[in-house]
């Protein structure tokens, strides 16, 4: 019996949808059939990673243009969970951004670093006219 879960979501390019998408991540953490780790922690982390990645796509890559839309896909198997967030931007060097030293009193710069801390594999790839941020978490 297949236990693959695939969720595809398209929302307008507006930050009002951050909470809704984050909650989908939380619900998935509580629903996954085979996960035997701390579900509350996984739920918070998926909410957070989705929020950070989506906010980045909406506010930076898509320049807060409300006429655009953002696509998010989540795929989960027994072994790993992958989130993909698609944007229409020019792209950026994510590995370089992750290495920038954020001072304790800096107001920004923590979003990408949080994603790298919480996920096991992070890639930012050219896809069609834009890019996709692909983030994978191993589930055991």
């Amino acid at each position: 019996m297949s236990r693959q879960v695939d969720i595809d979501i398209r929302v307008p390019n507006q930050t009002r949808y951050l909470g809704m998408i984050g909650k989908i991540g939380e619900s998935l953490a509580h629903t996954l059939a085979s996960y035997d780790g701390d579900r509350e922690e996984l739920a918070y982390h998926l909410n957070l990673v989705l929020t950070e990645a989506l906010a980045n796509a909406i506010c930076h890559a898509n320049a807060c243009d409300p006429s655009k839309e953002v696509k998010v896909s989540i795929s989960a198997s027994d072994h790993e969970l992958t989130i993909r967030v698609y944007d229409h931007g020019q792209g950026f060097n994510i590995k370089q951004l992750a290495k920038v030293k954020v001072k304790e009193t800096d107001e920004g710069g923590r979003g990408v670093q949080i994603i790298f801390k919480l996920m096991d594999r992070v890639r930012y790839l050219k896809k069609g006219p834009g890019h996709v941020l692909e983030m994978t978490k191993l589930l055991h």
Binding site: Y44, G108, G111
Partner: peptide
Amino acid sequence: RFVDSSGLGALVSGFK
């Protein structure tokens, strides 16, 4: 119940 990097950034701004 939930805070992201933007929420933390707002608090850092207030702190500074």
